[in-house]
């Protein structure tokens, strides 16, 4: 299986160094958005590189493409900045900010992967919250993470 980026909610400290690392590696356009649940946290939203990518289906110019290794990549030259992929993405990982009329889209730092390195966001993570692992391993971890104190304390506490 392919390796993907995974976030452990309990460990993230919201410092946004992943987004800074992403920006410095991609011509100052951060391809990584941050969600702010209830303004309490800043959690990175990574592209999941879906098996059936809705963004690619929505793209009018075939700029989004599912590669043979499972990565969903966006072509710089074909993207016209029409926001279709942003509206289509069910996870909100494609952010609305355009840079030179190109939509931001995580490319898993394929240049670093080719060198045998890990994506920049994972390398720069200060708290160890981001990991780059096989999808199967991550699914096991997700089950472990269901009892995450972070989410329970944030939301249950508020409802009370």
């Amino acid at each position: 299986m392919a390796k993907r980026v995974y976030l452990n909610l309990d460990l993230c400290c919201g410092c946004q160094s992943c987004a800074a690392a992403c920006a410095y590696g991609h011509h100052l356009q951060s391809l990584l958005g941050h969600a702010e649940p209830e303004n309490d946290a800043k959690l990175p939203l990574h592209c999941l590189h879906c098996d059936q990518p809705a963004c690619a289906a929505a793209c009018p110019n075939e700029a989004m493409k599912k590669m043979a290794d499972g990565m969903v990549l966006r072509s710089h030259l074909k993207c016209v900045g029409c926001h279709s992929c942003e509206l289509a993405c069910p996870f909100g990982t494609i952010q609305p900010d355009l840079f030179k009329h190109i939509a931001p889209k995580c490319d898993l730092c394929f240049d670093r992967l080719a060198e045998g390195e890990i994506p920049r966001c994972v390398a720069s993570c200060t708290s160890g919250a981001l990991s780059f692992a096989e999808v199967d391993e991550q699914v096991v971890d997700v089950k472990k993470n269901l009892g995450s104190t972070r989410l329970l304390s944030n939301y249950l506490g508020r409802r009370r």
């Binding site: 410092c15 946004q16 160094s17 987004a19 800074a20 690392a21 410095y24 390398a123 720069s124 993570c125 200060t126 160890g128």
Partner: peptide, 13 residues
């Protein structure tokens, strides 16, 4: 830091 760096660390660069 074992390789990690915060956003301010990138200003150096």
């Amino acid at each position: 830091n074992k390789g990690s760096l915060c956003p301010r660390g990138y200003y150096n660069f």
